[in-house]
Write a protein that binds this DNA or RNA. Sequence first.
DNA 1: AGCCAATGTTGGCTCAACCAACGAAAAGGA
DNA 2: TCCTTTTCGTTGGTTGAGCCAACATTGGCT
Lengths: 150, 150
Amino acid sequence: MVADMEQTPARLAGKPTWLVTQLAVHAHRLSSEGFAEVGARGYHYRILSTLDEFGGSSQADLGRRSNMDRSDVVAAVNQLADLGFVERTPDPADRRRNIVTLTEAGARQLDRLDEVLGRAQDELLAPLAEEERATLVRLLTRTLEHHRNA
Amino acid sequence: MVADMEQTPARLAGKPTWLVTQLAVHAHRLSSEGFAEVGARGYHYRILSTLDEFGGSSQADLGRRSNMDRSDVVAAVNQLADLGFVERTPDPADRRRNIVTLTEAGARQLDRLDEVLGRAQDELLAPLAEEERATLVRLLTRTLEHHRNA
DNA sequence: AGCCAATGTTGGCTCAACCAACGAAAAGGA
DNA sequence: TCCTTTTCGTTGGTTGAGCCAACATTGGCT
């Protein structure tokens, strides 16, 4: 039996793009599994948390703030509305727009999502100490910010 | 005009899973664009770099080392073989296996891929100083390592 | 009035990741 | 030696995130 058949080539393992995309696979799996426990998905959390923080918004604004395509917002809001977590009402001041608002049930669902998502964070960063986690978050935030405005 | 319609909710922006997956979108876009310049894709680089570092391998080993599903290795090796970058020969010692080897042309293609991929790294980490990049790579490596062995 | 921009919606597309099943072949245990 | 289990390559899927184009409706601007 040859030593370690699972070791990744150095050219790959050292590249930031590799590290980020591979870790994203785990991050996505962890958060998706958490969301699935309460019958939700990633796009739902984006919508609900945006509504909670900024209040009722048009779908276009929801998309801009949660980094979603307009068409994906439509589908997510449809599902959330079917579940009674959001309400869609026409904007009287602009008849192109819908105003999407968070319901009571939606706020409770958001609490549940926050809890399972919090556990996912812990699992993702399990090997890091508290200070290292803060450093990582700081560096990732700076980097992401740069690409958001570019 | 309301202030900043593009700001992301804090609950989202602060979560490591969010930061990692969102940054992965940029990482993936940057490396994909680079690969496309030389007519390649991510899976090709994984295969070629693994072959370069570990020498001829079975497809199963390639998959394990480059973190790919067996079925995806088949497709990638097919394409690389069509392009003349790898060769597939049956293993005389184990007739289930194919031994995949890197050709001269494949080695040259790998050099081209390394160059464009290097530029992608610089773009991805543009806002970070050299020391910060090293710190980020270190933290990501530790975290990824943890999930690889779990 | 006329033109351009924004909105919601439909219907598509790509790609990475992954899974199930299969026959062939090897490995290992009784 | 049989028999079971495992591995390998391969085929043929599925899912989900991120997109893009087009369209009709409506607003804003000049």
